[in-house]
């Protein structure tokens, strides 16, 4: 799918492990938050990352931006290996790749006016002082805010306006790639659509690539070209949008899609709801074999012993399942235990 495109991001077998410290600082265990993830992203492309809380999607985002240190693996941004970049090389990384957070309040200082917050980012990007006011105006216009907003404080803005400022700040350094962690989840429905459209317009205008992380599969379908589904620190399925939603082959992807309520009572009644019973295992003691096998309706012995590799099923469609197939939940019976 993205083969022909110029590649802006390549992540190879990335691992982020956190030590669990017991008394006297001894390491008593390891949380495998991200456990061997490989993704790539082309210019102007959106890769959606889906998964439930604790699957490692936010840690993956933070590791890509070097907010947390990767334990193993490689991160290549714009052709440059930045896995261990320091000093100028790390600053270069942050000019190419920026992050947009769920709650823009996390990235905005309540005592700093919007204009000054954007200017801060321009200083980091070495924009000459005389050019900055003009750039602030331009960036605000790009995200759909009038210049008058430069003189406002974050608390004077609505949720949607604050997220526009969060995006403006990320855009100030002129990145090629935005890593967006749940950027529309805190917004009201009517405002959410505006921000989704803004992301799409920015991509068209600036050729931005997005790694778009969300727990909301419908939002990802709207936003993404490809979607990767994560479970317990790994990608279990990845496919172009139209394939993943029409023909998911991993039992977990099918369970996720089958759990989402639809905005139509008729559609909800017409389909069979999948009950994924049991809890996500702890990433500090993942089950042997396939991490999903304790909750899977088609698990066999091999699943309990061997970790299924991410296999190529069709062009661009990768599935980590020994028995990848459609509609494994057709029986609808509950498996596992509550």
């Amino acid at each position: 799918m993205s083969v022909a495109r110029e590649q802006v991001l390549e992540v190879r077998d990335l691992k982020v492990h956190f030590p669990i410290r017991g008394s006297f600082g001894r390491t008593t265990g390891i949380v495998r938050a991200v456990d061997g993830v490989s993704i790539e992203l082309g210019r102007g492309e959106t890769l959606g990352i889906a998964g439930e809380s604790g699957c490692g999607k936010s840690t993956l985002a933070r590791a890509m931006l070097r907010i947390v240190e990767p334990t193993a693996g490689r991160i290549v941004v714009g052709g440059e290996d930045v896995t261990a970049a320091r000093g100028p090389a790390l600053r270069h990384l942050l000019k190419v790749m920026q992050m947009v957070f769920q709650d823009p309040n996390d990235s905005l200082n309540p005592r700093v006016k919007v204009g000054a917050a954007i200017e801060e980012a321009l200083i980091v990007a070495h924009v000459a002082p005389q050019d900055r006011p003009h750039r602030v105006q331009e960036i605000l216009r790009t995200v759909g805010l009038p210049y008058a907003f430069a003189r406002r404080y974050p608390h004077e803005l609505s949720g949607g306006q604050r997220q526009r400022v969060g995006i403006a700040r990320a855009l100030a350094v002129g990145p090629q790639l935005l890593v967006c962690d749940e950027p529309v989840s805190a917004l009201d429905v009517s405002v959410r659509a505006q921000i989704i459209n803004l992301f799409q317009d920015l991509q068209d205008q600036l050729g931005l690539g997005y790694v778009f992380i969300s727990h909301d599969l419908a939002v990802l379908r709207q936003m993404s070209h490809r979607v990767a589904v994560m479970y317990l620190g790994r990608v279990v399925e990845q496919a172009p949008n139209q394939v993943l939603y029409a023909q998911p082959l991993h039992p977990y992807t099918q369970a996720l899609l089958g759990s989402v309520p639809l905005p139509s009572p008729k559609a909800n009644r017409a389909r069979q709801r999948i009950h994924l019973v049991g809890e996500v295992p702890s990433p500090s003691s993942p089950p042997p074999g396939c991490p999903f096998h304790p909750r899977c309706p088609i698990a066999q012995d091999v699943c309990r012993n061997e970790v299924p590799p991410l296999r190529v099923i069709a062009s661009g469609h990768h599935v980590a399942c020994h028995f990848a197939q459609a509609n494994v939940w057709a029986g609808g019976e509950r498996v596992g235990q509550a």
Partner: peptide, 24 residues
């Protein structure tokens, strides 16, 4: 009507989302 239109869907064609302009 506008609220319903602005919800991203899991089924059907993906087009530009009709959003509600302004704020409450």
């Amino acid at each position: 009507q506008a609220l319903l239109n602005s919800i991203p869907r899991l089924q059907g064609a993906v087009g530009r989302l009709p959003s509600i302009p302004g704020a409450p």
